[in-house]
Design a binder for these strands. Structure first.
Lengths: 125, 125
DNA sequence: GCTAAACCTGACGCTGGCGTCAGAGGCAAG
DNA sequence: CTTGCCTCTGACGCCAGCGTCAGGTTTAGC
């Protein structure tokens, strides 16, 4: 799936990336600052992205909402591109997996508590 | 369950509350500042809590990890004490429930993505 | 009565993912 | 050529739940 020979691919500017992914322009710049998204530059200095940057940004958003930091995502990015991992990355993957799973459990427990109250207060108007 | 006649109940100080609930003393003071935990005061000004404050603080922690703000918790606190809710509180309860459920779904989706990568990279050493 | 531990009130710092404002340059259309 | 939108680089602001330091009082044990 890693097409390296995108010869005459249409490049898009930052606004199109932002709109496409549903985030702000500021956010996209921030991702670059964090080393997540490398952009080419036009002669005048404007950022130019490949279209799959949109997909990538959506992916970043998903990871952010899962509680990963940009630093962690940056460390894991090579996995997505190459499909290979070193020991450190595998450990990171498992650690994040566990963290997220634990958070799911916490949220589920909180949900149960809230449902208790909802049930009680619904039967006691 | 709401025993209002705790005549000679043993009161505890902030350190004991903190240790009992597994949080810092600073956190307990913060909860008071946010209107979550009202403490009596000794003649010299030290905070005095009933033992169930420990349970309450644990509950706060659970809600915090579920993403509720102290403001929201404060608005919902009467529900726990009285077992009654007004319309606003019921709406709040449902809104938080939905928010948490949505977050669970997001986390689950992120977990699936991570598991994909883990699976792929485990079979490709 | 002394000391160590615990408590008090401010008040500033930190983290992370941006929002937002300032001031300046780029680009297609009319 | 000008109008209007897009983009650029800093740099400060924000929120929420505390951590942490400063400087002073209280409590408990010996």
């Amino acid at each position: 799936m890693t097409v390296t020979q995108a010869a005459a691919e249409r490049l898009i500017r930052i606004g199109e990336v932002a709109r496409g992914a549903g985030v702000s322009v500021r956010a996209v710049r921030y991702y670059e600052q964090q080393g997540l998204l490398i952009a080419e530059r036009s002669p005048s200095g404007q950022r130019l992205y490949r279209q799959d940057a949109v997909t990538l940004v959506r992916f970043f958003q998903q990871m952010f909402t899962a509680g990963l930091t940009s630093r962690t995502i940056a460390q894991l990015l090579p996995c997505w591109d190459s499909g290979h991992t070193d020991a450190e990355q595998r450990a990171l993957l498992r650690a994040e997996r566990e963290r997220i799973q634990a958070k799911v459990d916490d949220l589920q427990a909180a949900l149960d508590r809230l449902d208790e109250v909802i049930a009680i207060t619904d039967t006691h108007p």
